[in-house]
């Protein structure tokens, strides 16, 4: 039996304002797409930050690709996050001063690793997302749906083994949301990686392998 791609056990995290998150067990296998559903404020985004190794838990463990985040150095955590994890945010979080191609290449740019293969992959991702014509355009001149598709391409640009999407359809109209969801699932399944898709919207959940209810995580 192969180890899960992401394995969370007895996780506990507390914010200074008293909010606490408790997750007894969460496991994600490679190639699996899981939707985490719950109302606003139940700790879904906090869970994603813990899963990405951005936050450190007060107790329990978060194992990614077989090793606990806590056992890795800060440098190693950053490197893994940049090369093995793709993050998608509700507010897109694109850099206004970069065009679409540069935003997609951002993980490569900060590492100084932009090469012809990376540029070709970025162009391919934009093509697949149906926004190749926006390659040289800056985010302010794009619609919300277009911006989120660029953000999606950025998350997939390093061919990550795990994609963590935080309410990626939250700011989009139903049609755009559906398209982004489909693109995300298609991209992850093509690469054989895992997907954690956090949402408060229960539409379109049939497309996922599994749905986890996060309503009980908060305390």
């Amino acid at each position: 039996m192969t180890a899960p791609l992401l394995d969370v056990a007895d996780l506990r995290f507390e914010w200074p304002d008293g909010f606490a998150l408790s997750v007894a067990r969460f496991a994600l296998a490679a190639g699996e797409a899981v939707a985490v559903v719950g109302p606003s404020g139940c700790g879904k985004s906090t869970f994603l930050h813990l899963a990405a190794g951005i936050l450190r838990p007060a107790a329990g463990s978060v194992r990614f690709e077989g090793a606990d985040w806590a056992a890795r150095s800060e440098r190693e955590r950053r490197r893994r996050r940049r090369t093995r994890i793709g993050l998608v945010f509700q507010e897109f979080e694109l850099l206004d001063h970069l065009d679409a191609t540069e935003n997609v290449l951002l993980p490569h740019l900060v590492a100084g690793e932009v090469d012809a293969a990376g540029r070709a992959r970025a162009a391919q991702l934009l093509e697949t997302a149906g926004i190749a014509h926006l390659a040289g355009r800056k985010p302010r001149r794009m619609s919300h749906g277009e911006r989120q598709r660029v953000a999606l391409c950025r998350a997939l640009s390093t061919a990550p083994s795990l994609v963590l999407a935080d309410e990626p359809t939250g700011n989009l109209d139903p049609a755009s949301g559906e398209r982004v969801r489909a693109l995300l699932l298609e991209g992850v399944r093509e690469s054989g990686g895992g997907l954690v898709f956090v949402t408060h919207d229960r539409t379109g959940l049939d497309a996922f392998d599994r749905v986890v209810d996060a309503a009980e995580w908060a305390s």
Partner: peptide, 16 residues
């Protein structure tokens, strides 16, 4: 701040 937070989240070091 948001831009710099995003960079940090995707794995960009503080030194960078």
């Amino acid at each position: 701040r948001r831009e710099l937070d995003t960079l940090a989240k995707i794995g960009c070091g503080r030194g960078t």
